[in-house]
Simulated scan of single mutants.
Amino acid sequence: MKIGVVRGDLSEREHLIRLVKERLGWEVIWSVGSGIEAGQRCRIQKPDLMLMGIKLSGKMDGVEATRTILKEHQCTIVIVSRMERQNTSIFKALSAGAIDAIEMPSRNSESISNFVSRMRKLKTVSQEHALKNAEQGFSAPKKNVKNKVSQLSDDLPDLLIAIGCSTGGPGAVALLLAELPEASRASVIIIQHMDEEHASGMAEWLDMQIPMRTRTIQGGERPESGTVFLAKTNDHLTMDASGRLIYTKDPIENPYRPSVDEFFCSIAQHWRKKLVAVLLTGMGRDGGRGLLALRRLGCHTFAQDKASCAVYGMPQDAAQRGAANEILAPGQIGGRLREIINISQGSGNFQGGKPGENE
């Protein structure tokens, strides 16, 4: 693996370089402190993986550097940052095209071990993925969404949209949800593989990108019309018989936390109104089993296409299972969901696609 390191603080840059070389055995082909320098180095020698900080030397931060570099180069960029709870810059960088974000390792052994473990997983990502530039892939237009309110009601929404995703998910979700109307009788629930300390930051960032109101799930709520809900703990999110959203540690043996499969299977059992499910970019095989269960119940299901995925793992598993009615890019899925919302609120009656359609 050939690595490029971009970080403003020299001592932290040297710390990363040392860990990459000594603990991972990879080659650092260059290291710089600014986004401008990183772009210049990419023109000469493009790395397999670029470790990008948020705070850089010069006027350009890591968000702008990511956006600028991806317009010119097909790079795989990972954000390495201190994960403060409300650090929305991390999610802006993910929207600009970075495929993942990991914690900047401290000097203690546990932090270093966590960093090394995450980096080894990201090696698989970088080897299977040629990231598209921000304009083609994961940039979402910022909407004027001031004074957003949800359509609060004692009744459950007419339509539930369940979305599962992992690596590359925040940007893909933003592209999809940017297509949905602010006011509707639909509710969205997102299961994103993400450490609980980052969920609030993602919800705040996503709320600025899309028309609908976004909030994290505390536990015990029921879906609300006009609202996007985001799972916020390392436990599994499920729905109980009353339609409430609850967290549970079981099954302990499921390594994906929160698990898309566990949530999809629970709504297959307990949701009694119209339901659409979506599986987006991500590493591993979580979600395909649950998506297939929903399709077999007659729900309309979508999977992200290979060309637009940061990592074609979870959607590929769904496609191989025949779990998706339609396989599209995130923006296209958003457009189809908008059509479904309009039909569900009108006199028409939306029906799921026929087996094998658009596969």
Rank of each mutant, 00 (worst) to 15 (best):
I3R: 05
V6M: 03
V20C: 11
E27M: 11
A38N: 03
R41V: 03
R43F: 15
K59M: 04
K59H: 02
M60I: 01
E64S: 05
R85Q: 09
Q86S: 12
N87E: 14
F91M: 04
K92I: 01
A93G: 07
A93H: 05
S95L: 10
I99G: 10
A101H: 05
I102A: 14
F115C: 06
V116H: 06
M119S: 07
R120C: 11
S126N: 02
E128K: 13
A134C: 12
F138W: 10
A140Q: 01
A140P: 00
K148M: 10
S150K: 12
Q151T: 08
L152V: 04
S153T: 06
P157E: 06
P157F: 13
L159N: 01
T167A: 14
T167I: 13
A199W: 01
E204S: 15
Q209A: 15
T214Y: 04
I217N: 04
Q218N: 09
P223H: 10
P223W: 10
E224W: 10
F229I: 06
L237W: 09
S242R: 13
R244N: 10
P251H: 13
S259H: 05
V260F: 09
I267Y: 00
Q269W: 01
R272M: 11
R272A: 15
R272T: 05
V276D: 02
A277L: 08
V278P: 01
L279R: 09
M283T: 04
T301I: 05
R321F: 07
G322C: 11
I333T: 02
R338A: 15
G346L: 10
G346P: 01
G346S: 13
S347D: 03
Q351H: 14
G352K: 15
K354G: 07
